[in-house]
C-alpha cells in the first residue's frame, strides 16, 4: 500500500532523486527570505557592537584630551575638577582583581556542585538542588549588594581579623583593621553571584558526557573519581572554560553589588582585608549622577577600557576553546 502511494507521487518530484520535493517558486522565495532574516539577525550583533564601540570612543575623546594626568597610570578619579585629573590604573586593577578572586573562589565550588548534581546526588535531590541554584541566578544584584553590606560585612570583618592575626605575614592579609568594605567582602559577594552561572552551564556539559565513555572507564576498573577524572572532566573541558568565561563576564561588569560592598579606594594594592577596592563599573555607578560634562566623558572613557578588557577576555576564551576542539571531537 505504502509503496503504491509512493510511486503515485506527482511526476515533477521524480527528478529530485532523494524523495524531497524540489521547492517550487514561492517556496524558494520563502527560503531566501528566511535566509535573509537569519543573516540580518546575525549581523545585528556586529552592528550593535560596532555602534557601542563608536559611541564610547566619540564620547570619551573630549575627556581624554582634557585629562591633565596620564590616563593609564594615574590612580585617582577627580574628573570634575578643573583641570580634570583621572586615570584608569586603580579601577582597572580593582576590576580584574575582584573578578579573578571571585572566580578562584566560585569555580571549584561550582564544579563540585555540578558534579554532585550529575554524578553523585539522587535524582530527586539533584533536581531540587538544581532548582535552588537557578533561583540564586535570578536574585537581583542589588539584593546581593545590600545583603553583603548589611549582614555579611560583620562576619567577613571577623574573618578578616582572624586571617590578619594568623596569616598576617602573607602580604595579601597584611591590612590591619578596621575591617569594613574591603576587596575580600566584595569578591566573596561576587563569587556567590557568579556561582549559579558556572554551575548551571557546567552541569549541562557534565550531563552530556557519552555513557560509553563513562562505562568504558568503569569497565577498565576505574573508581568513580577516576572515571570522572578520565572521562567526564576531559570531555567537559571546553564547556567548563566557556562557563567560567561567562561567569567572568558577569563579574567584570557587575556594578551595584560592588558599589555597595567595596571601599571605593583608588589605589593599586593587593591588600584584601583593609578598606579598599573599586571597579570600573562601580565607579561609573557612583560618579555618574553628579558628574559634569567632562566627568561624564571621563566615565565613558573608563567604560571603553572595560569594553576592551571584556573583549580581550572573550577572545582569549574563544582561542582556548578553539584550540582544544579537536581533542574532544567537536564537543565545543
Amino acid at each position: 500500500m505504502s509503496q503504491q502511494s509512493l510511486t503515485t507521487t506527482p511526476a515533477g518530484a521524480q527528478g529530485a532523486g532523494g524523495g524531497g520535493a524540489l521547492p517550487r517558486g514561492s517556496r524558494l522565495g520563502a527560503e531566501k527570505l528566511f535566509r535573509g532574516l537569519a543573516t540580518a539577525a546575525g549581523s545585528t550583533v556586529l552592528v550593535i557592537i560596532v555602534a557601542i564601540a563608536a559611541f564610547l570612543i566619540v564620547q570619551a575623546v573630549p575627556a581624554l584630551r582634557a585629562d591633565s594626568e596620564n590616563f593609564f597610570t594615574f590612580q585617582s578619579w577627580f574628573a570634575n575638577d578643573d583641570p580634570p585629573k583621572f586615570g584608569i590604573a586603580a579601577i582597572a586593577f580593582g576590576t580584574v582583581l575582584t573578578s579573578a578572586l571571585a572566580l578562584i573562589m566560585a569555580v571549584p565550588v561550582a564544579l563540585g556542585i555540578a558534579l554532585c548534581l550529575t554524578h553523585y546526588a539522587h535524582r530527586r535531590v539533584a533536581s531540587t538542588l538544581g532548582f535552588f541554584i537557578d533561583l540564586l541566578a535570578a536574585v537581583p544584584s542589588v539584593v546581593f549588594g545590600l545583603w553583603g553590606r548589611d549582614y555579611f560585612r560583620g562576619p567577613v570583618g571577623d574573618f578578616s581579623k582572624f586571617l590578619h592575626d594568623h596569616f598576617g605575614w602573607i602580604p595579601l592579609f597584611g591590612g590591619g583593621g578596621p575591617y569594613g568594605n574591603s576587596i575580600l567582602l566584595g569578591s566573596i559577594v561576587l563569587a556567590i553571584m557568579v556561582l549559579p552561572i558556572v554551575t548551571s552551564l557546567s552541569r549541562e556539559v557534565f550531563a552530556q558526557t557519552p555513557a560509553q565513555n563513562e562505562e568504558a572507564a568503569l569497565a577498565l576498573g576505574a573508581t568513580k573519581w577516576e572515571m570522572i577524572r578520565t572521562a567526564v572532566l576531559p570531555y567537559g573541558k571546553p564547556g567548563i572554560i566557556a562557563s567560567v568565561m561567562l561567569g567572568l563576564g558577569r563579574a567584570l561588569g557587575e556594578t551595584i553589588a560592588l558599589a555597595l560592598t567595596l571601599g571605593a579606594v583608588y589605589n593599586v594594592s593587593f591588600d584584601l582585608l583593609g578598606t579598599g577596592g573599586n571597579t570600573i563599573a562601580a565607579n561609573i555607578a557612583l560618579k555618574f549622577a553628579e558628574a559634569n560634562p567632562t566627568g561624564r566623558s571621563a566615565l565613558i572613557a573608563s567604560g571603553l577600557v572595560l569594553f576592551a578588557i571584556t573583549l580581550v577576555v572573550n577572545m582569549t576564551a574563544r582561542a582556548i576553546v578553539y584550540r582544544r576542539r579537536e581533542f574532544v571531537g567537536g564537543a565545543a
Binding site: 577627580f78 569594613g180 568594605n181 558599589a259 579606594v265 578598606t275
Partner: peptide, 14 residues
C-alpha cells in the same frame, strides 16, 4: 573641597 572625597584613608560607603 569637592564633590569627591579627596582625603586619604577612611572608609567609603555608597
Amino acid at each position: 573641597a569637592s564633590k569627591d572625597w579627596k582625603a586619604a584613608g577612611g572608609q567609603g560607603a555608597a
